[in-house]
């Protein structure tokens, strides 16, 4: 099944760069991005973490394209990410590093993404990111006031080439479409300390 054409909006990850997502809702954000990237997907998760993507719960068209690598240690994980980023036909590489990314590692991944013209998304622990990242997202699921809604708050907390912002939206986990609860806006208040 062909994935739907990707819309262009504030949630587009800049191509050929590596991005980071943190927070409880980072896996949902990764799947949302996976649904918007046509082409083969690679999900790299260490073998020891119990969470697995559940095939029946994935957005439409993602399960068939997904490859799951389960390296046994952190070095192999970073090696897999770099290797996958260097392969042009891969559209999105999602990885779950367990240790904080060093600046060297982050920079190497950016170079690999540029060489392979691939986008990467690291699902990091809180404050486990690298300064070399293009954007960093904080993703949290929100309690829904109305039934049948699945609100998320996705905040762009670091952006090298643009403004940051925060969006509250409904994403039901099946398609590439989102319903904004509050419209995207310019930032009025002064920015907090850069992270």
């Amino acid at each position: 099944m062909r994935p739907e054409p990707a819309p262009t909006d504030s949630f587009d990850l800049r191509a050929r760069r590596v991005h980071e997502a943190e927070g409880r809702g980072r896996r949902a954000f990764a799947l949302f991005q996976a649904a918007r990237h046509p082409g083969p997907l690679v999900w790299i998760a260490p073998a020891h973490i119990p969470e697995l993507p559940m095939l029946q719960g994935l957005p439409r068209g993602v399960g068939e394209r997904l490859h799951l690598f389960r390296p046994s240690n952190e070095t192999d994980l970073l090696w897999c990410v770099e290797e996958a980023l260097r392969v042009a036909p891969i559209s999105l590489v999602i990885a779950e590093p367990q240790q904080p990314l060093s600046l060297t590692a982050g920079r190497r991944l950016q170079l690999a993404a540029e060489a392979g013209r691939t986008t990467g998304l690291m699902l990091i622990r809180e404050d486990g990111g690298s300064n070399a990242t293009e954007t960093r997202w904080n993703c949290t699921p929100l309690a829904s006031q109305a039934p049948d809604s699945t609100p998320h708050r996705w905040s762009l907390i670091k952006n090298k080439k643009g403004t940051i912002g925060s969006w509250t939206l409904n994403w039901n986990g099946t398609s590439t479409a989102v319903h904004m609860v509050s419209a995207a806006r310019e930032r009025h208040e002064p920015a907090g300390a850069a992270r």
Partner: peptide
């Protein structure tokens, strides 16, 4: 290349 480094049993695909 990934299979030769981390083992082919760790390079997986989800099948229904």
């Amino acid at each position: 290349s990934v299979g030769n480094r981390i083992g082919f049993e760790r390079v997986l695909r989800l099948l229904p």
